[in-house]
């Protein structure tokens, strides 16, 4: 074997190994998050009655921060998104004389796709990053260690409330987003466009059904489970230095966004494809 063949052979394997590192890391993260999810499920089943009270207290705080404090931002975004979408869609449809499809198109766009996606982005930006930073600073300051050593299971006290809070908050915010985007959007468009309120509502009533409720529920469960888990996982991975906190927060936001985009697309294809 010539030396040229050997060096080519070596370069090929080095290139393959470099490709493999990325795949291995991604699979490793996926495995770690699945393992944390399993731990949440398992330790959630092992919660005792008196512990449930403490967990629900923390969950209530999480819901306040994630849902209640984000409600005004969510409604404002929904109002603008609904209005702009309605104006754009009306412009396109009226060119073909198909204004009657307006509410159907808007309902599908807002309830099925835009609402869950925008809410997930708001929650990642407001609460997901906060969870990652909080977990990272708790880990570095020894608070997580103290919980464990005091017999307070960190999965039960830290992760399960954030997971429950995430699911409840995202479901609530998606419902509010949909309502404000549709009704507020209609109101905004009604100021400029010749739209009938009754016809709009009648048409909406025909479009929104159990399927829309199902997709809202499925996406709430998916996003509400994975956003807090991924963010907590990224935060708890810090090792020694406060300089790791911003890196953990960035990773948390990016991974959560990827999961939301891919997961949302998969759910939509499965339910409507």
């Amino acid at each position: 074997m010539s030396s040229l063949e050997v060096s080519l052979d070596g370069a090929f394997w080095r290139f393959s190994a470099r490709l493999g590192v990325g795949v291995r890391r991604s699979l490793g993260r996926l495995g770690a998050i699945s393992w944390i999810l399993y731990q949440c499920f398992w330790h959630g089943l092992r919660l005792r009655w008196h512990q449930l009270g403490v967990v629900l207290e923390v969950t209530r705080t999480q819901i306040r921060f994630t849902a209640l404090d984000a409600l005004s931002l969510t409604c404002f975004t929904a109002f603008l998104m609904g209005g702009i979408t309605l104006l754009q869609v009306f412009g396109q449809l009226s060119a073909f004389g198909a204004e009657t499809y307006l509410s159907r198109l808007l309902a599908k766009l807002v309830i099925r796709e835009l609402g869950p996606l925008m809410v997930a982005i708001i929650v990642i930006g407001r609460s997901g990053t906060a969870i990652a930073a909080e977990m990272a600073s708790m880990k570095l300051s020894g608070e997580v260690d103290s919980l464990w050593a005091s017999g307070m299971n960190p999965v039960q006290y830290l992760l399960i409330p954030r997971l429950l809070g995430g699911i409840v908050s995202i479901f609530t915010l998606i419902v509010f987003f949909g309502a404000v985007a549709l009704l507020g959007g209609f109101f905004l468009a009604w100021l400029w466009l010749p739209l009938s309120w009754r016809a709009f509502l009648d048409s909406l009533g025909k479009v929104i059904g159990s399927r829309e409720l199902a997709i809202t529920l499925v996406k709430s469960m998916l996003f509400g489970t994975f956003i807090p888990l991924i963010c907590a996982y990224c935060g708890l991975r810090v090792q020694a230095s406060p300089t790791e906190i911003p890196q953990a927060v960035t990773k948390a936001a990016v991974y959560s966004l990827v999961v939301v985009l891919v997961g949302g697309a998969v759910v939509s294809v499965m339910l409507y494809g």
Binding site: S137, G142, E143, D145, S146, A149, G151
Partner: peptide
Amino acid sequence: GGLAWVPQDGGLLV
């Protein structure tokens, strides 16, 4: 709750 852990910085929840 068998263990009492008292670290240097207290380890209290901030």
